[in-house]
């Protein structure tokens, strides 16, 4: 939902970043306002996932230039956990398995970290169980998953549902979903997308990172951005995604080549 008077949540200006000695982001510009759903599309290696990890604060990536403001304040000098507590959420492309750490306990600690930041009271074990059982319905997840170790032995679809469950509990202002559709069959995709749609509101914003149009059939973006060579090359409405689906990425490569020569 595009509203000209909506608050700006995230403002990325000329962002450069590298991993080890390799520059990946080469000047990303992107502004996201409350209520909006953005999709970033692009080939493998275009920098999409790097963008999501830099925003969440992954230590392997070094920002070499530009700025990111989150609700008007500098995001990049915050620790990853501070970003999360302030309402920035990253749904992982490959959620990490953590043997021996109970999913329920993990979800409770993380939910309380966010609640404390919002000035809400911490939930005890019982109150949290009530909350989590209610939110499980958003992703139609079996409560048995709560008793298992975090993501351990979960199928690809179950891991992604667990990500959306975390999103439902953490109530983020900006949710970045990194290839949440990858590895999902059509039913799982429908459930995950249903969860994302359910959680979208005029107060928050979503940034979908994806390869394929099919996610955008079930979550309608307000903006579609095409990324290549570490930059956003073109921005349009949802019809841009359809164009990509139609024409492939070759024309993007040609545009990029022209740009890099210039």
């Amino acid at each position: 939902m595009i509203r000209p008077d909506a608050d700006t949540l995230l403002e990325i200006v000329d962002l450069h970043a590298r991993v080890e000695d390799k520059p990946i982001l080469k000047g990303v510009n992107l502004t996201i306002k409350a209520g909006e759903i953005h999709a970033v599309m692009g080939r493998n290696g275009s920098g999409k996932s790097t963008l999501s990890k830099v925003l969440a604060g992954h230590p392997a990536y070094t920002v070499t230039g530009g700025s990111v403001r989150y609700r008007g304040a500098d995001l990049l000098n915050l620790e990853p956990e501070q970003r999360a507590r302030l309402g920035l959420f990253l749904g992982f492309q490959y959620p990490v398995e953590i043997p021996g750490v109970s999913n329920l306990e993990f979800l409770r600690v993380s939910t309380n970290a966010r609640r404390m930041e919002k000035g809400e009271e911490e939930l005890d074990t019982f109150a949290f169980e009530d909350l989590v059982r209610e939110r499980l319905q958003v992703v139609q997840m079996d409560p048995a998953f709560l008793e298992r170790s975090v993501n351990e032995g979960f199928s690809g679809g179950e891991k992604k549902r667990n990500e959306i469950l975390q999103m439902a509990l953490l109530d983020p202002l900006v949710a970045i979903l990194d290839e949440t559709d990858s590895g999902l069959d059509i039913d799982a995709l429908r459930i995950v997308a249903g969860g994302v749609n359910h959680l979208a509101s005029p107060e928050n914003a979503t940034l979908l990172i994806t390869h394929y149009q099919r996610l955008l059939d079930v979550i309608t973006p307000d903006y579609v951005h095409v990324m290549a060579g570490g930059r956003i090359l073109r921005t349009g409405g949802k019809e841009l995604a359809l164009e990509l689906e139609d024409r492939g990425y070759d024309w993007v490569d040609q545009e990029l080549a022209v740009l890099e020569v210039a």
Partner: peptide, 14 residues
């Protein structure tokens, strides 16, 4: 690192 980052990205301190 990836396990630590995953937990930190959910609001847990290092």
């Amino acid at each position: 690192t990836d396990e630590l980052f995953y937990l930190q990205s959910r609001g847990l301190s290092a």
